[in-house]
Nucleic acid binder design. Structure first.
Lengths: 149, 149
DNA sequence: CTCTTTGCAAAGCGTTTGCAGGCCC
DNA sequence: GGGCCTGCAAACGCTTTGCAAAGAG
């Protein structure tokens, strides 16, 4: 479990600050049910509902920052906007199977993919943040659908 | 090699048309050196230079169509715009290691990832279009960089 | 001859940014 | 106290869309 203190330490280490907003956002993602991911706007709404209004720009800045720190994963499901979820280590780390027509997504796990990702980054001297296998496909329902495109 | 005829057949099968623009765009991607990928705008410029001007909207419509047909792959390198490349089958199929700071990308191949993708789609009855492992990381140079964020 | 596709220009929309005030360390 | 961070509103830039004309089958 990644704590606020760990976040603070990591931020301060780079000359940055731990703010209430950043702490709140971290908490939200940690309490999200497994497999649930949020867009910036969904996060904005959720925070508003729970009585912690945070401006959209701060949200955008924070999720980007946390993604680059490896705390969140940025998911691109080709819907025109990004989704975010907490970046869980093994054995919670997972990947996505996505229907390009209806955007239905199914999660799945794979130790070997994670291993390959880790090894590949290492081999080139990269510092790994996240590795995700995205399978773009058409789900059974959409295969049968008559709707064009 | 995916021919114009194959494209025509596949389009007509769905009641669509093979147009000069679509044929030209397919050809461009087929002649691109391995590992090279284009954004919509880059493709637009390239076509212009080679004397085949095609409007940006047609380009957007075409790359989206071909991605959904599984002919092109849509690559998201988090630069705010998508890149496209021809979707090669085994053994040309590859994945990307991306630096989230400078966007440098390194390609790598992996039979096992492709197998896992194929199997996973199959298991859920999905029709596979593309599977890509994206490794988000920080490259050696950027790790050393003093520039914030 | 019908229905798809193109090109143009305008609209759309998620995301970024400049700036003044506020806050963390 | 200094510099980072927030919130607001405006700007941005990639992508999509409406529409009339052109073209494929």
């Amino acid at each position: 479990m990644y704590t606020s203190n760990a976040l603070k330490a990591e931020l301060n280490d780079k000359g940055w600050r731990l703010t209430p907003q950043r702490e709140t956002i971290l908490t939200v993602f940690q309490n999200l049910p497994e497999g649930k991911h949020l867009s910036a706007e969904e996060l904005h709404d959720l925070l508003h509902e729970q009585g912690d209004p945070i401006s959209l720009s701060t949200i955008y800045r924070t999720v980007k920052l946390m993604s680059r720190m490896g705390i969140l994963r940025e998911l691109e499901f080709a819907e025109g906007h990004k989704h975010y979820e907490i970046n869980q280590p093994y054995p919670y780390h997972h990947h996505h199977l996505i229907c390009v027509k209806c955007n239905k997504t199914i999660e799945f796990k794979s130790d070997s993919v994670l291993k390959i990702g880790t090894k590949t980054a290492q081999k080139s001297g990269f510092h790994l943040l996240d590795c995700q296998l995205s399978i773009h496909a058409i789900c059974p329902q959409c295969q049968r659908s008559i709707v064009p495109n």
